[in-house]
Design a binder for these strands. Structure first.
Lengths: 368, 368
DNA sequence: GTGAAAGCGCTAACAA
DNA sequence: TTGTTAGCGCTTTCAC
């Protein structure tokens, strides 16, 4: 096409000039068709913007007639409120920042799912920020969210997070901060967690009740509170049942299928083998089952239990007994508590701590 | 404590007055400690806000000395830019709206994960909105995001979505719209998808190559394009191999473990049983394996293949052959394309369509 | 290279 | 019940 016109250099230039003007004209058109504001509505109705604002926000002291007129005109003119502008004056964005280690981890995806679903009902949106298990990224996340003027932050700490000063900034700005699941002792703030000590206790106790006596535990090297707590619960149950706490039955490794697999192979080399193995999470438990399968052992011959109730746990063969982490409930509790924190009319409550109770799901892998 | 002071009614009132004043004083303190703005920096440095703004945004025509002074002062005064204010003037929020059916679905969680990770590097945040497979909610999502003045929207359609006018609004506002995975014929917009027809073909072809001849298919009743496409690919492979396309081998049901379980039981009642079964997704495939297990059949005796490469597929026994949906790659491609769309300097490209190639992951369930 | 000034679209006193 | 007015904190012309 262009080549068709370009019979000479001048013609070619003309074409380009034409294109240039045309382009600007198009842009002009786009610019002219700008969005309608409350100001436009006001002009159309011969009232002032404040009246329009009040009508639209359904604020008291507005006559039905004008409110209806405004609403009708707004619809007619295809008006869409600009939250950015209203945020600037009101100081509220109705956006909540959510920091999680990774949306790819099923537990966090589920919490985020529940959070968003719940908060939406109250007019809040969420900005999602992933720390990807990095402290530095988590710090940047807090900055990013505060710059975006979020109304508050809900976060679960990265594995790396060993200092929490970046979260203090949130409180300094007078904005609510809520920590869930992965907390930190130095961080005084409202939180929603699950009783991990009890989860560990529950898992171990269940095995004991099923008649298992030599219970091994494959967990992570990471010094995260929740894993330490689970281990503490394990110890408590073992002691309570007056069983021996054998160091050779505690395997530290990766929190993964491979971790479970390797750990199990190691355990099976003991001359006095365990008769049950607890996995640090369901993936570890899956690795345990795989390793047992390789040795032609099928649970519940050796009992296996996991943590987290992954979507597959119910369906593998044998189905996996596990401790449910109540992700949906945790999301809902977070949302509920957070809305309470946002409502500053209520007294500045001492940091409220919600602790959920884990749930034992008995399935085939421990059913003797 | 209070009771201690309240020896008389007047004393009591005094106490309350004291508390009241004290409270106001506290509030005053909080109010006074307001955030520093570029105006404060300007005053401190005896320059104007425009200079500060330019220095902070590292805009040309600013002397090194003043820029350094401003930056130093900003740090000293603990300045934090207010993106809401800058958005109001600049018209850009650096926030992108992401609409997915549910963050709880692993595929979408992974795409969101990749998206956020990628876009963050370019200064963008994302607001997450879940349609929860509801058209109405999806429509509200578009409105919410546009009101929040997002710079554009990336979306994957809900199962219910049979009309797409709500997405036209996005384009009307001159904002980029990108649809991924679940698209709609009526919606003309850039998209990132996977070649589902080929995925179906690939799965079927693989089974045929492995020597299976009587291949059944358990899929969903939902009229979603991607499932229809996979089925089309199945048909193509069957025809190409000159096999019979048997209606009794096509089971429509739920896309779930139960759906696979029920469908398989039905298939096994045929006098001429299939020797391989394709599941509409990995959960269906899991149900298939469970049902076969009940009948004491273990794949690959009857071959089983799924779609999506869920996290468990690799680890169940037998491990599941599946077609990977390239979720991470899809997220990355979406981000990449979207950044291109945001960069309007580039010509208004005709709706670009990125089509990813699915990936066959051969595992035990089909390894004859 | 810097300053002055006009908004962006809306809210929220304070008046009337 | 409605209008007037002054910003919210920042960007961005247009001068100088």
């Amino acid at each position: 096409m262009v080549r068709f016109f370009c019979v000479s250099a001048t013609a070619c230039i003309k074409v380009f000039i034409f294109i240039y003007i045309y382009k600007n004209f198009l842009e002009l058109l786009l610019t002219v068709a700008k969005k309608t504001t409350i100001y436009d509505i006001a002009k159309e109705l011969n009232i002032t913007v404040s009246t329009v604002s009040r009508a639209l926000n359904n604020i008291s002291s507005i006559s039905d007639s004008t409110r209806e007129a405004v609403v009708a005109m707004a619809k007619k003119m295809n008006y869409r409120p600009n939250k950015v502008a209203s945020s600037l004056t009101s100081g509220k964005t109705y956006i909540i920042g959510v920091i999680v280690p990774s949306a790819q981890i099923h537990f966090f995806a589920t919490v985020v799912h529940a959070l968003e679903k719940y908060l939406k009902r109250f007019g809040y949106s969420i900005i999602l920020y992933q720390s990807n298990e990095s402290l530095e990224s988590e710090q940047r996340g807090v900055d990013t969210l505060l710059e975006a003027q979020v109304d508050g932050i809900i976060a679960s700490l990265s594995l790396e997070t060993d200092e929490v000063s970046h979260f203090e900034k949130v409180k300094e700005e007078g904005k609510p901060l809520l920590i869930f699941d992965r907390t930190h002792d130095l961080l005084r703030s409202p939180s929603v967690t699950i009783d991990d000590e009890y989860a560990g206790y529950m898992a171990t106790k269940h095995l004991i009740d099923q008649g298992y006596r030599k219970i091994a535990y494959i967990t992570t090297t990471h010094q995260i509170k929740i894993f330490q707590e689970r281990y503490a619960g394990y110890q408590r149950a073992i002691k309570e049942a007056k069983l021996k706490l054998r160091p050779e039955f505690i395997i530290l490794g990766d929190l993964s299928v491979d971790g479970g697999f390797i750990g199990t192979n190691q355990l099976l080399q003991e001359k006095d083998r365990p008769d049950a193995i607890i996995g640090g999470d369901d993936f570890v438990a899956l690795g345990i089952i795989k390793a047992l399968h390789k040795h032609e052992i099928t649970p519940p011959t050796i009992g296996v239990i996991g943590f987290a109730n992954q979507s597959f746990s119910e369906h593998i063969i044998p189905s996996l007994t596990t401790i449910d982490q109540q992700a949906v409930q945790m999301g809902n509790e977070c949302a509920k508590l957070f809305l309470k924190l946002l409502d500053k009319s209520k007294a500045i409550a001492p940091d409220e701590q919600v602790v959920l109770t884990p749930l034992l799901l008995e399935r085939e892998s421990t059913k003797k």
